[in-house]
Every structure is written in C-alpha cells, then in structure tokens.
Simulated scan of single mutants.
Amino acid sequence: MKLTQIERVKKISKSDFITQYVKKQIPVVVEELIEDWPAYHKWKLSYIKEIAGDTIVPLYDNRPVNHKEGFNEAHTKMKMSDYINLLEEKPTNYRIFLYNLIKEVPTLKNDFLWPDIGLKLVKQLPMLFFGGESSKVFMHYDIDYSNILHFHFHGEKQCMLFAPSQSKFMYKVPHALISREDIDFDQPDYEKFPALKNAEGYITNLKHGEMLYMPEGYWHYMKYLSPGFSMSLRAFPKSISHLSKAAYNIVIMRYFDILMRKFKGQKWIDYKNAKAIENTNQYLKKSA
C-alpha cells in the first residue's frame, strides 16, 4: 500500500483548519490544540483508574464478526480498575470501543473543552476508546460519516486512514462498514488481496495530547503501540451525499444486516465475505 505521513501542525486557526483541511477533506494532526484542557495534564490511566475504577466496562477483542452476536455487542465485561491493571501488566487484545464513560462518571466532563475550531460539534457526551499494547481496531469507517476530532491520551497509537474514494480497493464487506477481517493491514498478503497494492492512504503515530482530524467517511485502522486511550468528538457530514449514505446506514442497512443474520446465520456472514473478494476482483478486471 502507498501510505503518506499525515501532515502535522503545532497550532492552527479556525479559518485555516476549515479552508485547508475540512473543505478539502484531508486529514491533519494538530499537536498543541488541548494544552489548556485539564485533561491534558490529568488524563492518564492512573487517573481513570482512580476516578472510574468501580465502573463496569464492556470489552471487545479481535474475534471475527459472528451471526450470534448483536450489533456492537461486547465480548465480556470487567471493572475498569481490573481492566487498567491488565493493560499495565501485559499486552492484551481487550479494548473498550465507543463507550460513553463520561456519562457513567460525569466529573470527567469538567476535564475537557469543546474546541472552537470551525466545526459544529455534536454536543453529546463524547465516546472513549481504550486499548492495550499491540491491540488493533479493524479497518472500518463510521456509520454516520461524521467529521471526527480524535484526541489521544497516555501512550502512543498508530492510525492508518483511507479516503472513501479508496473503498474499491479495500475489500469492503457488503451491508457492513468493514473490510474483510482476515486482512492484516500491518503486513498485507498481496497474493490473496492484490487490490491493496493500489490503495493510497495516510499514516501517523498519535502521542499524548495530539488531535487527529478524520474527514467524512474515512476508513481507519488503529493499532495501540502502548496502553492508552482516546476520545472522539464529531460533527455531522457537510456533504449531501454523505448525509444520505449516513441515513441509509442508520435507518436501513444496519437493520437489514441484523435481520439477515437472524434468518441465515453464519451463511450470511460467509456470503458477505465472499462477495467482498468477488466485488473487488471484478473492479480490478474492469480497470485493467
């Protein structure tokens, strides 16, 4: 794959952020956006353990999608203090994904500010994501096509992004928001997945306090290089096309997929995975 380092800036004005990145739908890392947040100094795993240690949290691992599991259904649960102990002891695949910890522990909302950066952010309590060393978030894009401000805390994580225009190379699973889960995006098997050679994307490593802007509908694959956690703030897509796709995903696609899993079981999952290869190979043949 052809990966370009995501552009980085120390600071940025509202007008420059909108003109140079949001309107052009290009990702960027802003390194010093949140130094005035209490979270910049406080949000470490030890602080989360202290303030939210008794909270029971949902955990996900790297097992493939299964027809018996519900949409975004957690694989297990444990106390936050036990989970952080696990993160600090050894590498683990267990992750906290898209979790509203701030709703469970409201005092956390005093630690961050809504950045005045030109986007009309959805003023709901933001979602948090936690992961252990070497844990991975499979390649996917978000159901609502939002513009995303992704802030990282405690440690370092690698972020790989691809624009929606690259979907034709991504072995997208139909009626879903993911690539085939057997693709190793760290070391792609080009014999099995030759289209990935044509994919052009972006990559960066996020460190504590840095913010990554992910434009609408961007594919993203995350790998925790060390234990840490992140927070995402979102703004609705500006593109009419992306708004309509988001509405379709939320209102129709998600429930159609749940229904087909219920009636066809694993055969439906296997069919979709086969179609991901078939559809991508057909595109390669047409474009050859």
Results as ranks from 00 to 15, higher is better:
E191R: 11
N279P: 04
K79R: 14
L243G: 03
D36Y: 00
E191Q: 13
P91Y: 02
Y218V: 01
Y202D: 04
Y47E: 00
E89L: 11
K168M: 14
N110C: 01
H67A: 14
I56C: 01
I143C: 02
E210W: 10
Y283F: 15
Y271L: 15
F256W: 13
H220T: 02
E88D: 07
K197W: 05
Y271F: 14
P106F: 04
F138R: 13
P237V: 03
A246Y: 10
K264F: 14
A195E: 02
I102L: 08
V65T: 12
I178P: 01
K264W: 03
V29G: 06
K275C: 04
I148M: 07
Y83F: 15
Q166Y: 11
D54P: 00
A199H: 06
E191W: 00
K103N: 03
L101E: 01
V30R: 09
K136G: 03
V30C: 07
E104L: 09
R63M: 08
P194C: 13
S244E: 08
A163Y: 05
K49S: 14
L212D: 00
L59I: 07
F112D: 00
S13A: 05
P215V: 04
V251M: 12
L125V: 11
L45M: 11
M253W: 00
A52Y: 06
Y141F: 15
T4I: 12
W219Y: 13
H208C: 07
P126I: 12
N72A: 13
E31D: 08
M260V: 05
A247C: 07
E35N: 13
K157Y: 00
S134L: 07
A163H: 14
E88A: 00
I26F: 08
E73G: 04
